[in-house]
Each structure stands twice: as structure tokens, then as C-alpha cells.
């Protein structure tokens, strides 16, 4: 699947660079925005759940708990939001010139990943401030991030392609993302959920990813291997199926967009 991108790698690079430039043109604090969003969401959740509602379901600091959840969620929702209108918004390119269409949603995933990495540096800083011991289990972040990127890419491709045909996708995405936010354990822990609902929540790969990102960093525990294998396999399968469908239907984008 990557082979068809090889001869267009320069175009992909330039697209990423362009989106990055556009994003921070005429902006005062530029790339600092990458940390402002997760930090402010974290502060908000800490205030609402720690000060107003006074809930506690984990014995580690609110700040770490929420930041660890907000960081992957911001990446996912940022990339998906970008992707949805990426093809239909660039119709002047799509109807005029051929290039692998996935390059446009891919560049959205890439710039949001840059933001994610910047945010991750802040996360490591927070872990150090709260004196969380670093363990070898931290390395599980590698495969977890890979899964997060693959899943985000799949959903981005799917919604970008669908929005070429039906603009309903854009309209529906607003509240669908909101629902998905609550279906992902960003502001709660899956441990607090009744067993009946756990299975349902785990149908969302983000649930596994977010929970385990907390587990391997804050708790310093390893992942449960069979769960990891299962989720990894389904994320990969989803990615290949969606990418294959995408490459087949992209031929008609110019005619229907």
C-alpha cells in the first residue's frame, strides 16, 4: 500500500509542510498551540472533576490522569476533523490533477502527529514533575502510538472518502465525535465501568489505547498481551480494508465531488 506513495513522497512532504505553514501563518504563538489545547482541557477537567464534583477513581494525580487521556484524543479528533473536509475542500485539485488522493488526509494525520509529539514532551515533563518512576514498560508506548496512528488514519480515510459522496458526514461528525469522546475513557477510567458495559466500550479501539497509555506510563505496568494482539490485529485489518476500498473508489472522486 505504501509503494504507490513512494514516487509521490515529495508531494506528501510538501503537503505536510504546507499544512504546517498555513496552520501557524499570522498566528502569534504558533506551534505553542499544540500544547495549549491539551493543557487547557486538562485544567478544565481537573477543575470540574477534582474541585467541583470531587470524584476520584484512581489514586494518581488528576493532572496526569486527564492529560494522558486528552493527548491521544486531541490527536484523533484533530486529524479526523481535518480529514473530513480535506478532499471535498480541495476539489480544485482533485478534479484537475492526479495524485494519490490519500495524500491529503495523510498530511492532516501528519501535522496532528507533530502536535501530538510536542504534547508528548510536555507529558514526559509532567511525569517527571510528579515523580512517576520511569519503567521499561514505558516502551509499550511505541506499539500503542502505532495503533493510535493506524486507527486515526483509517477513520480519516473513511470519512474523507464518504464526505466526497455525502456531505452529511461533515454535519454528522460534530456530534459523532462528541459521542465518541464520551465512549473513550478520557474523563473516566474503564475500571470504574460495570462489566456489562466494558465489552461495549472496548469495541472502540481508542478505549484500549487510552487506557493502556495511562497504564504503561503512570502505573508502570505492562499491557495484557492477548488484548494487545487482538486490538492490534483488528486495527490492522480495519486499516487494510479501508485503504483498499479507498484506492478503488478514488478513481471516481473527480466525477462525484
Amino acid at each position: 500500500m505504501l509503494s504507490r506513495l513512494v514516487q509521490y513522497k515529495d508531494l506528501l512532504l510538501v503537503f505536510i509542510w504546507r499544512e504546517f505553514l498555513i496552520r501557524y501563518k499570522q498566528s502569534l504563538i504558533g506551534v505553542l498551540w499544540a500544547v495549549v489545547q491539551p493543557l487547557s482541557l486538562m485544567a478544565l477537567f481537573t477543575f470540574v472533576f477534582g474541585v467541583i464534583l470531587k470524584t476520584s477513581n484512581k489514586d494518581y494525580p488528576y493532572v496526569l490522569f486527564f492529560y494522558a487521556g486528552v493527548l491521544p484524543w486531541t490527536f484523533f479528533s484533530g486529524a479526523v476533523n481535518f480529514a473530513i473536509t480535506s478532499l471535498s475542500g480541495n476539489f480544485n485539485l482533485v478534479t484537475k490533477i492526479y495524485f494519490p488522493r490519500e495524500i491529503i488526509p495523510f498530511s492532516g494525520v501528519a501535522i496532528n502527529f507533530i502536535d501530538f509529539l510536542v504534547g508528548a514532551v510536555v507529558y514526559v515533563g509532567l511525569l517527571l514533575v510528579y515523580q512517576v518512576p520511569l519503567t521499561w514498560n514505558f516502551l509499550w508506548m511505541g506499539p500503542l502510538i502505532l495503533m493510535l496512528v493506524l486507527y486515526t488514519t483509517s477513520i480519516s480515510l473513511l470519512l474523507a472518502a464518504l464526505n466526497v459522496y455525502y456531505r452529511d458526514v461533515k454535519l454528522a461528525s460534530m456530534f459523532l465525535l462528541q459521542i465518541l469522546f464520551f465512549a473513550t475513557p478520557v474523563i473516566y477510567s474503564i475500571d470504574a465501568v460495570d462489566n456489562r458495559w466494558k465489552l461495549l466500550l472496548f469495541c472502540n479501539p481508542l478505549t484500549f489505547i487510552v487506557e493502556n497509555m495511562r497504564r504503561v506510563t503512570i502505573e508502570g505496568r505492562g499491557v495484557i498481551l492477548w488484548q494487545m494482539a487482538l486490538v492490534m490485529a483488528s486495527v490492522l485489518l480495519l486499516y487494510f480494508v479501508i485503504y483498499r476500498v479507498f484506492t478503488r473508489i478514488e478513481r471516481s472522486f473527480a466525477d462525484v465531488i
Partner: peptide
């Protein structure tokens, strides 16, 4: 087919050369 497809108004001429050229 259409001159300047892919030009972005916020980017400079030079930046748009890279963009349009790779397209």
C-alpha cells in the same frame, strides 16, 4: 488545466512554487 490550482493565498510566492511544482 487550471493555472494555480493548489495555490494557497496565505503562502508566499516561493512557498507556492514548491506546492504547485510538486503537484
Amino acid at each position: 488545466i487550471e493555472l494555480g490550482a493548489g495555490f494557497h493565498p496565505d503562502l508566499t510566492g516561493m512557498e507556492n512554487i514548491y506546492m504547485n511544482g510538486t503537484i
